[in-house]
Structure formats: structure tokens, C-alpha cells
Design a binder for these strands. Structure first.
Lengths: 110, 110
DNA sequence: TTTCTTTATGTCAGATATGGTATACTGACG
DNA sequence: CGTCAGTATACCATATCTGACATAAAGAAA
């Protein structure tokens, strides 16, 4: 993705939960954004299943609570690497990742 | 992953193709390394299916041939982000990614 | 209300990834 | 042998990501 388009994405904040805000993106861009959203949702869901607070998950990751919050909101400062490593730290398997990636994006906005 | 372990990984070069070299890693670390290898293999395979050279793929990515080579060898300087964005640029879908991730790692070493 | 717990947001210095360039390697074809 | 297309490797300046910290906000329970 070139810089120009990246900036276009960042300008939108890509914290959106529905498909409408993805309009105007190329298929690759849309897929990339949706992937990030799916992973971030999975992090929150799995963390809650494990009955962990963001602080506890941060300790698992040797990171900080604020970064976990950003991970769960798919903040633009969070890489796919960190999203995936967070899921792995929560005990997710490769199969789990595949399931998350292929599953439809949950509606964040009611 | 903390720095210390990252360095341990990098020291190993993680360019390995079989499971033996993954000994000594925690399950998360092994999953992370295997994930990178699967994605890098998929890039090379998909690129060849598309009958593209590394130079042509680099143009698609607005990147350079050298970086594509590193992507395909899962070089330590390549992020998951770039691996995934490369696959998406090659036309891979979320389903394709899921398939790659859940598939077993091809034996690079005969 | 106040207090406590949890999560969100902003900032920044240091760490890591990136594209670009140069150069080297490899195999195929004369 | 030499030449060429394709790929691999090394390096660097710049861009981006990261953990840490501060602080705000939201929610629960008194």
C-alpha cells in the first residue's frame, strides 16, 4: 500500500465497525482493514473468555495496558504482528486464527 | 514476545523449513515462526502461479525486488503486515489466508 | 456524592520495518 | 568462456511501531 492511500485510510480512522465506511477502498485495502478488525475483536473476546483484564493481558505480553486497549480498538498504531502475537499469547492456535480470519466481521455498531 | 526471546529467535535465523529447528521455542513462538513461513511460502507459490517475477510483484507493491526476496524468505526484517499485504496484492482473499494459515508447513528441506 | 476498578486517549523516545540502492549469486542460452 | 534474466544479500536514511507513562473517562458499588 502506498503512502498516499495509507494516509487516506488513517484519515478515516478505520475504527469503523460496518462495511459502509469501507467504501472507496480497493478490495485489498478493504480486506486488510477487515482483517485487522476481525483480529482485534477476537482479542477482546478471547481475553474476556479467559477472564483477564487489559492489565493482566499486558503482563502476558510484556507490554502495557494502553497498548492492549489500542490493540482491541485496532488503533492505527498497532501492527498486524502485534494483533497476531496477542492472540497467540492468549492461547489461540493456527486453526483459531484461520477461523477468525474467515469469519464474518461482527457488527461493532448495534 | 520480549526482546530477549526475539533475539534468541533472530540468532537462529528462523529461515528454517522443518520443525526440528523450532525446538526450544514456546508454543506461541513456534506458532509465530511457522505462520511467517507459511505466508512466505504462499507468496512465492502465488507469485509463480501468476507468472510474475519478483520485480513485477515489487511494482504491484510499490516496493523493491530486494524486499520481495526477503518476503519470500521470511527474512527477519519483514513484518507480518508486509507478508499479508503482499498476499492480498496477489489477489488472495480472506479465505485464502485462512487456508494458508491452517495448512501444514511445506517441507522446504527435502 | 466519593472511591475503586477498568478501559480509553495522548504523547514521546527508543526500537524496528521500509524502500531504495548497490552488488553478488545462480541458472540458462549461446 | 560471456551475457543476460532472475533472485539473493548488505547497507542505510527515513518511516513506522512499540512500551511506558500520564491522564481522562466510564462503570460499579457504596
Amino acid at each position: 500500500m502506498d503512502k498516499e492511500k495509507k494516509e487516506r485510510l488513517e484519515a478515516k480512522g478505520w475504527k469503523v465497525g460496518s462495511a459502509e465506511e469501507l467504501l472507496g477502498l480497493t478490495p485489498e485495502e478493504a480486506a486488510y482493514v477487515e482483517l485487522r478488525l476481525k483480529l482485534s475483536e477476537a482479542v477482546r473476546q478471547l481475553r474476556k473468555e479467559r477472564h483477564l483484564t487489559q492489565v493482566q493481558l499486558a503482563e502476558l505480553l510484556h507490554s502495557s495496558q494502553s497498548r492492549v486497549a489500542k490493540v482491541e480498538s485496532a488503533d492505527e498504531s498497532v501492527s498486524l504482528d502485534l494483533l497476531v502475537r496477542t492472540l497467540l499469547a492468549l492461547g489461540a492456535s493456527a486453526q483459531d486464527l484461520a477461523t477468525v480470519i474467515s469469519a464474518p466481521l461482527a457488527r461493532a455498531i448495534a
